[in-house]
């Protein structure tokens, strides 16, 4: 959260924060990631869109190794993603993750959900962790629910807590895996607003989503995936007004026609 907002320059100027090189993955016979190459610069907000089954969630999950890859290389801030053990856990602490199904720790209070990482992973003192958690919960507007259990909150509130939980680790990059897909329509905006605010503060974000409005408002770059490949990448303006590939035209035609 300390990084300054940066201009949306291409990743060529400095070392990319997240870098994928020739990444491949199979689920059995299915080739879900085909030779993916992607660099994400510090402070950049990248939105990944595409039809279901295109591999976009797998891509997102591969970046903190919730999915293993068959070959290729993923580096975070210059460090190659370790295979196992403590080194992997340490690196994951630098990569915040927000899931489609929130995945708040069901037996812990909202406050404990947010303080657990700082205390157990970073060794922060209880008081300091609580202050940090409360300020983050306040930022996403759920500080008045701190003593409740996750199941007592609405989906939108739970997802905002999940964002606060990830931010509490002070990650270098935040991954969002379809963060609004499990939400009732009236709750989508409260989560998107929190994400837009985060983007404006300069957080590096990789967001898999179907929310085109979010892509327009907050993305520096849109990546369109289909059949496990990156078919196209462009600024949101360019992508939505002038998609080049037929797959992208077809996809946009289907979702924007209403």
């Amino acid at each position: 959260m300390t990084s300054e907002p940066q201009p949306t320059s291409p990743a060529s100027s400095a070392r990319p924060l997240v870098s994928l090189k020739n990444v491949n993955k199979h689920f059995g016979d299915l080739h879900v990631l085909r030779n993916i190459n992607l660099d994400v610069a510090r402070g950049e907000v990248v939105v990944v869109i595409g039809p279901s089954g295109s591999g976009k969630s797998t891509l997102c999950r591969a970046i903190n190794r919730l999915e293993t890859i068959d070959d290729g290389e993923i580096t975070i801030d210059g460090k190659v993603l370790p295979a196992e053990g403590k080194a992997l856990a340490k690196l994951r602490a630098d990569v915040g993750m927000v899931f489609q199904s929130f995945n708040l720790f069901a037996h812990k209070s909202i406050l404990e959900n947010v303080t657990l990482g700082p205390i157990k992973v970073k060794g922060m003192k209880g008081g300091a962790a609580k202050d940090l958690a409360m300020s983050l919960l306040k930022r996403v507007g759920v500080d008045n629910q701190a003593q409740k259990l996750p199941a007592q909150l609405s989906g939108g509130q739970q997802q905002r807590v999940a964002i606060a939980r990830a931010l509490a680790m002070q990650p270098k990059v935040m991954l969002f895996d379809e963060p609004t897909s499990a939400l009732d329509p009236e709750m989508i905006n409260e989560v998107l607003d929190a994400m837009v605010a985060l983007a404006k503060e300069g957080m590096t974000m990789i967001v898999v989503t179907h929310e085109m409005g979010f892509a327009r408002r907050a993305a520096d770059r849109v990546i369109f995936m289909a059949d496990g490949q990156i078919m196209e990448q462009a600024t949101p303006e360019e992508f939505f007004t002038n998609p080049r590939s037929d797959r992208a035209k077809d996809f946009l035609g289907k979702i924007l026609s209403h």
């Binding site: 919730l66 602490a93 990569v95 990482g117 939980r165 680790m169």
Partner: peptide, 11 residues
């Protein structure tokens, strides 16, 4: 998802 979330925060 509980285990994934735990791993994702670095446990």
């Amino acid at each position: 998802g509980q285990a994934e979330a735990a791993r994702a925060i670095g446990l």
